[in-house]
């Protein structure tokens, strides 16, 4: 079932937001700092209750929430205990818990030797991955991720993109991400919601949103470099390149246009 936000307001941060989040798709929420991205996620998860309006959501859906700073959600002495705590609600036997732990660890490509470490002594990238594993191990139908790749290097980012896309495709999960990293949003999203000052400026298919060069710039939202290039070519030189994800496709387009 879809998640529907009807006329949601929260203090002065979110102002009368109406939006439907598509099922089994990756939705990215983008916007400048202090625009209400995190608050919107917290409202969907139910950490904060809206001051007015309503959120429609299926009761049986399990929703996981991954925080921006992973260390805020660690409580136990070892990584294994952290994962066990999340799996407690299911009444699994020990063998199954073990299997689940190792599975979720494999999914995020962490080494098993880290299981016995103190989560707070892990490196930042590993902390991020662990918090993702904590979400994945309970097998939620909706994953909410707040800045999942901030501070990650390129390779890890690629892995997260691959992982989230696989989860979406294989298990039909709904994934909602708030991010500042516009290149990441461009690579991963199906649906994009752009917000500023607690109001939705644009929403829709990612190409539809990122094409609105001027409107996004006005609202302090950056544009993926590759689309910026195409937009500038169109605006300055009236050359239509088409909107591409890959730099190699862009090169082909440029070559084609040069020949003509």
């Amino acid at each position: 079932m879809e998640i529907e936000l009807k006329n949601i307001s929260y203090r002065k941060i979110i102002k009368k937001v109406n939006v439907t989040i598509p099922t089994s798709k990756i939705t990215c929420i983008i916007g400048p700092i202090g625009s209400g991205k995190t608050t919107l996620l917290e409202l969907i998860k139910g950490i904060k209750t809206p001051t007015s309006g309503s959120i429609l959501i299926d009761e049986n859906q399990k929703i996981s929430f991954t925080k921006q700073f992973p260390e805020e959600q660690f409580f136990y002495k070892t990584v294994r205990e952290e994962l066990e705590k999340n799996l407690k609600i299911f009444n699994y036997n020990e063998e199954k818990i073990n299997k689940k732990i190792i599975d979720s660890f494999k999914m995020v490509q962490m080494k098993e030797e880290l299981l016995s470490k103190d989560p707070l002594t892990l490196k930042r990238d590993d902390m991020k991955k662990l918090s993702l594993a904590l979400s994945l191990c309970i097998n939620p139908s909706v994953l909410i991720l707040d800045e999942p790749v901030s501070n990650m290097n390129y390779l890890d980012k690629q892995n997260v993109i691959k992982l989230l896309k696989t989860i979406k495709r294989k298990y039909n999960k709904t994934i909602i991400i708030a991010t500042n990293d516009i290149e990441f949003a461009h690579l991963i999203s199906d649906y994009v919601i752009a917000i500023n000052n607690g109001q939705i400026i644009l929403e829709g298919d990612k190409y539809k949103v990122f094409k609105e060069y001027d409107l996004l710039k006005e609202n302090n939202i950056s544009i993926p470099k590759i689309i910026e290039f195409e937009s500038i070519a169109l605006r300055e030189k009236k050359i239509k390149l088409g909107y591409r994800d890959e730099i190699n496709d862009l090169i082909k387009d440029i070559l084609r246009k040069k020949e003509v």
């Binding site: 400048p32 700092i33 930042r124 901030s150 501070n151 500042n180 302090n220 939202i221 950056s222």
Partner: peptide, 11 residues
């Protein structure tokens, strides 16, 4: 040390 990760483009 990764101090600008959460800032938006203009900022």
């Amino acid at each position: 040390d990764n101090a600008t990760t959460m800032l938006d483009f203009n900022t």
